[in-house]
C-alpha cells in the first residue's frame, strides 16, 4: 500500500491541520518546512505523493516542482500543489511546471483527501 506523503509547507498550523486530517486514515506524513529540504526528502524518503505549498521563504514551490519533475528519480511522484494563489493564471502555471493537482487554500478536509486518494490509486 502506497501511503507515504511528503508535505512541503512552511506554515506550522497548516502543517498540523493537514497531519491531523491524514493521521487517522493510515497515511505516513513526512514534513519539510522549506523547499530545499523538501527536495532532499523527496529523494531520500521516496514518498508516494507530495503536497507542495508555493509561497515559501527561500525556494518557491514552483522551483521545487520544476526540479522534482526534471529529476528522473522523482519525476514519477505525483505532486499536488496546495496554495493561496487562486487565480486561473496560477493554476495554469502549476500545470506548466508539471504539478498533477492543484488545491486552493483554504480547503475542506474532504476535498483534499479526495484529490490525494485519486492520485494514490492511479
Amino acid at each position: 500500500m502506497s501511503n507515504k506523503i511528503l508535505l512541503i509547507e512552511d506554515y506550522p498550523e497548516t502543517v498540523g491541520m493537514i497531519k491531523s486530517i491524514f493521521k487517522t486514515r493510515g497515511y505516513e506524513i513526512t514534513v519539510a518546512y522549506e523547499g530545499i529540504t523538501g527536495l532532499q526528502k523527496a529523494i531520500s524518503e521516496k514518498p508516494d505523493l507530495i503536497l507542495l505549498d508555493i509561497m515559501m521563504p527561500g525556494m518557491s514551490g514552483i522551483e521545487v516542482c520544476k526540479k522534482l519533475k526534471s529529476d528522473p528519480e522523482t519525476s514519477k511522484i505525483p505532486i499536488i500543489i496546495i496554495s493561496v494563489k487562486t487565480e486561473n493564471e496560477d493554476l495554469q502555471l502549476g500545470k506548466e511546471v508539471g504539478a498533477d493537482g492543484y488545491v486552493t487554500k483554504p480547503f475542506y478536509p474532504d476535498e483534499l483527501v479526495e484529490v490525494v486518494e485519486k492520485y494514490l490509486q492511479s
Binding site: Y11, E13, T14, G16, M17, I18, S20, I21, M55, V84, K85, T86, K105, P106, F107, Y108, P109, D110
Partner: peptide
C-alpha cells in the same frame, strides 16, 4: 488577500473537522 488565506486555511480545516 493571499496572506489572509494562510491563517484561514487551518481555521476552516479544523472547524470542518
Amino acid at each position: 488577500s493571499h496572506e489572509l488565506r494562510t491563517p484561514l486555511t487551518p481555521i476552516i480545516g479544523y472547524i470542518s473537522m
